[in-house]
Amino acid sequence: MTARDAILGAIRAAAVPPASAAPALTAPAATAGSPDMHEEFLRVLGTVGGRGVVRRADQSLDQALAALLGDDRDGAVIVRGRFAVAENAAVYVDAADLEARTQVVLPEHLVLVVPFDAMVPTMHEAVRLMPATSACGWFLSGPSKTADIEQALVVGAQGSRTLRVIFDVA
């Protein structure tokens, strides 16, 4: 008997009674669709060690990038984020938009450019926006970090040292 057959056989033999699917959860009305979602996103992003801005109408994207990056322009990689999640400052990046998958983790400085309108309140809405045929996708929330040494937060563990988000108004 193969391992596969043995394991599936043992599962059948366990005869677990049916259990209904998890109840569908939606975000509470207080945060869903709130006009303050960008504010919430930027606040949470600050708490996870990132920085973000909304591009002003009088700025070009280049100007906004220059203002946000400062001296970190060298070594910065700019990638497209598909959408953002207000509750946890995560931005969804899909491998289809990258030259290499390591681009989300290898650069010293990572910049995510996200369309202003592409914002959902929580992960419940976010997982539904993941492309059905995605080969690889990420929710990125702030830069790489570790607290493995006496719980002292150190930003820039193995991945990017900084992570910045620009909301781009179309």
């Binding site: 996870v48 290499a100 702030g142």
Partner: peptide, 15 residues
């Protein structure tokens, strides 16, 4: 105590 981890990867295919 974080709202989500810094990296959450959903990988379905090898590159």
């Amino acid at each position: 105590g974080q709202p989500v981890t810094a990296y959450t990867t959903h990988v379905t295919s090898p590159r």
